[in-house]
């Protein structure tokens, strides 16, 4: 199939940026979306045009590096799928596709489709851990954890930190990202000791980074490639409320 692409090009953080039109020729339906971009890039190089910069690494939907807005939807049209796993069978000959980077004040553009998501690392630094040092911990089976709690923790922990939730949110809020981490630890006995402090610190840091607040649009859940549920945001709000009431 042949496609028309409109791609965001921006040389660096200072550059203003603009959409450019490219043709994607001889694309097959078995290709992944990123393989389609590879083919376009090879073509551009041969025409002496700088290839389109985009972030990617594992190409199997787990590292959270790939991050494209496709026709206004983070990671594109297929539900629960990162763009590296999106395949061209979801498009048809003659389609026009708009490709843009994540847009959010907290994720400045680095180049073309690449953004700086280090704000997520800094939110995690504020409290996204259990403070144990290496060594001197009890036997792994000494604290039983119900399958239900372990499963809930895992549901939340599945977040890949890609930032699609922020890109999808009209307020550019990072609530789903934080809620996932807070809920993961809050569901486990090991996470109890720092439970209150953690939620307060992470939320305070989110505000500092310039993310917006959650006003229940739930676009984040729809965009999340790992289908992290917004029920975790409700859980985090309860955690936050309790933590604020009882102090530390």
């Amino acid at each position: 199939m042949n496609l028309t692409l409109y791609v965001w090009r921006q040389k660096n953080a200072q550059d203003k940026g603009r959409m450019e039109k490219y043709d994607a020729k001889n694309i097959t339906s078995h290709m992944s979306f990123l393989e389609m971009l590879d083919v376009v890039n090879e073509d551009l190089i041969h025409q002496n045009i700088e290839p389109i910069a985009f972030d990617h690494d594992c190409r199997e939907g787990i590292c959270g590096t790939c991050s494209l807005m496709i026709n206004g939807i983070p990671h594109g049209p297929q539900r629960a799928t990162t763009v590296c796993q999106l395949h061209m069978r979801y498009f048809k000959d003659g389609d026009t596709i708009y490709i843009e980077p994540w847009r959010s004040r907290a994720f400045p553009i680095v180049r073309d489709l690449i953004v700086d998501r280090s704000a997520f690392d800094r939110i995690m630094q504020a409290g996204g851990f259990i403070s144990v040092n290496t060594g001197g911990v009890p036997d792994a089976n000494s604290i039983p954890i119900s399958k239900k709690d372990a499963d809930t923790a895992m549901d939340a922990a599945a977040c890949i930190g890609c930032g699609a939730c922020v890109a999808a949110c009209p307020n550019a809020s990072a609530m789903l990202f934080i809620a996932a981490k807070v809920s993961h630890f809050a569901s486990l006995p090991q996470g109890q000791i720092e439970r209150k402090e953690r939620v307060k610190k992470m939320i305070a840091h989110m505000d500092k980074e310039g993310f917006g607040n959650c006003t229940n649009y739930y676009e984040c859940e729809a965009a999340c490639p790992k289908e992290i549920s917004v029920k975790f945001i409700a859980k985090m709000n309860r955690e936050y409320f309790k933590a604020s009431l009882t102090g530390r």
């Binding site: 851990f129 259990i130 144990v132 290496t134 060594g135 911990v137 009890p138 036997d139 792994a140 089976n141 604290i143 039983p144 954890i145 119900s146 399958k147 372990a150 499963d151 923790a153 895992m154 922990a157 993961h184 630890f185 569901s187 486990l188 090991q190 996470g191």
Partner: peptide, 22 residues
């Protein structure tokens, strides 16, 4: 064996049996 202990203490949500053991 120390690795599994360490990871559980850090909050790794390993799969569990119904009785709560790993």
């Amino acid at each position: 064996n120390n690795i599994i202990d360490q990871c559980v203490a850090q909050g790794v949500p390993f799969a569990r049996e119904y009785g709560g053991t790993l």
